[in-house]
Amino acid sequence: MIELKNISHFYEQNEQVLHDISLKIDEGEFLFLSGESGSGKSTLLSILSTLLKPSEGELFLDKTNVNDIQNIDIFRSDKIGFVFQFHFLINYLNVYENIALAAKDEFKQDINSLLEKLGILELSKRYPNEISGGQRQRVALARSLINKPKIIFADEPTGSLDSKNSKIVYELLKNASDAGTTVVVASHDAAIEKYATRTIKMIDGKI
């Protein structure tokens, strides 16, 4: 499903943040990418999710070399969901509209059922500033799931949440993995390890 071959990355000529990383991630796997701040885990996640092009090496997603993709935006829309530490919801759109904006036409009919699964259906007409941080993060998760992506990438998805809401997010990501979606989470929170099928620790840009 995902394969890295000899990935290295430099932010400046003398600042190497990733060192010759090769890795395979299977379909439906829930991979926990752990490490302290500065370990390189967020950079690696950015490369995995196509948001950053590596300085060296090759990335394959769904058996496709990313360098051969003609339109990366369409590829992301078709295959990838993103969850970040900050929800990036649009404040002048309500919950339903935030998700509908990201949804393809064939999946718009699924918005309410997805909100119900996430326990936030009653919030569909509210705006981001009218709901809690944990609820906003669940809306962001719904937005990432609505198009039924093959892969979900999450960077510190619970960094601003308490333990109760963090558990809800972890369980939802685990449910997505159990349903066949490949999930890759970068976080310093060790609590996620019990939900993951595999844990990889990053130290100084290496696995």
Rank of each mutant, 00 (worst) to 15 (best):
N67I: 03
V95L: 14
I203G: 11
L31A: 07
K63E: 06
G40Q: 13
Y92W: 12
K53H: 04
I47D: 01
V183N: 06
K194Y: 06
S55V: 05
K125N: 03
A140Q: 06
A179Y: 04
D26C: 04
L145I: 14
P54W: 00
K125W: 01
F153R: 00
H188S: 14
F107Y: 13
H9Q: 15
A179D: 05
S37T: 10
K63F: 02
T64M: 03
I72L: 09
A176V: 13
I25D: 07
N71G: 11
L59P: 00
G38L: 05
L18D: 08
T199F: 02
R126Y: 06
N165M: 13
T64I: 00
N71F: 00
M202K: 14
L33I: 12
Y11F: 14
E171C: 01
K164Y: 01
F60T: 12
G205S: 09
K5S: 10
Y96M: 10
V95P: 00
F75M: 14
M1F: 02
L115W: 12
T64V: 03
F32N: 04
A179R: 10
N14E: 11
E56M: 11
V183G: 02
D78I: 02
S163T: 15
T199P: 00
L173H: 12
A103M: 08
K206G: 13
L123W: 05
T50I: 04
L59A: 01
G57D: 11
E171K: 07
K104R: 05
N71K: 10
G159L: 09
L173E: 00
M1K: 09
Q13C: 01
I7D: 10
I47W: 08
H9W: 11
I203T: 15
L44W: 03
G38M: 13
G28F: 03
D62W: 02
D162N: 10
L48C: 07
L23H: 12
V169K: 03
F88L: 14
P128W: 10
G28N: 04
L115P: 10
S132P: 05
A154M: 09
D189W: 06
A190P: 04
S39Q: 02
N94P: 07
L172G: 01
F107L: 00
S77N: 13
H19G: 09
L33N: 02
L31N: 11
A190E: 15
L173M: 04
L18E: 14
